[in-house]
Simulated scan of single mutants.
Amino acid sequence: MTTELLYRADPYARGCAARVLAAGPEGVLLDRTVFYAQAGGQPGDTGALEWDGGSMLVARAMKGPDDTVLHLPAEGSALPPVGSEVRASLDWALRHRHMRMHTTLHLLCSLIPGAGVTGGQIGAERSRLDFDLPDPPAKEWLTERLAALIAADHPVGERWITEAELDNQPELVRTLSVQPPRGAGRVRLVRIGPEDAPVDLQPCGGTHVRSTREIGRVEVTRLENKGKQNRRVYIVLAGE
Rank of each mutant, 00 (worst) to 15 (best):
P181Q: 11
E4L: 14
A124Y: 01
L6K: 09
D10M: 07
A124R: 08
L176N: 01
L129E: 05
V178N: 03
L5R: 15
S110K: 13
W141N: 04
R213G: 08
K228M: 09
L172G: 09
L79N: 10
G239C: 03
H106V: 10
L223C: 04
P180H: 10
P194D: 14
R210Q: 13
D200S: 15
G40F: 12
Q202V: 06
E219R: 15
R213W: 04
E140Q: 10
R128S: 10
T33Q: 11
L201D: 12
M99N: 08
T175E: 08
L142G: 04
H102N: 11
G53Y: 05
R188E: 14
E125I: 02
G116E: 12
A78N: 09
W92I: 05
P136T: 07
S55E: 11
T3D: 00
K228G: 10
D200P: 10
A164Q: 12
R191A: 12
L146H: 04
R191D: 14
G83V: 09
A147T: 03
S177Q: 08
D135G: 01
Q202T: 14
I235Y: 02
R32E: 09
F131Q: 06
V117E: 13
E4S: 09
T175H: 11
L94D: 01
R32K: 14
V34T: 12
A37M: 10
F131D: 06
D200C: 15
D31E: 09
T162V: 04
F131V: 05
S89K: 11
I112A: 07
D66A: 09
E195Q: 14
A88S: 12
V199E: 14
P136A: 13
G83D: 11
P136Y: 06
P136Q: 07
R145Y: 02
R217Y: 03
R191P: 10
G27V: 00
E214A: 15
A93Q: 11
G41F: 00
R159N: 05
L21G: 02
P43C: 00
P155L: 13
A48R: 15
L70I: 00
V190D: 13
G193F: 13
R232I: 05
V173P: 07
L201M: 14
E165L: 05
L129D: 05
V86K: 02
T103A: 15
Q229K: 14
P203H: 12
D135M: 03
A9T: 11
L29H: 01
V34S: 13
G227V: 09
C16M: 06
L90T: 08
R213V: 12
P181T: 10
P43A: 00
E26W: 00
L129Y: 14
V82H: 08
V69C: 00
G44M: 00
R232M: 05
D153L: 12
M1L: 06
G193D: 13
A18F: 12
V28H: 04
Y234C: 01
A88M: 03
P11E: 09
D91K: 03
N230D: 13
H154G: 08
V86L: 10
E171T: 11
A13Q: 15
G27S: 04
G40A: 15
P43M: 01
Q169G: 05
V236N: 02
F131Y: 13
Q179M: 04
T3I: 02
L21E: 05
A138Y: 02
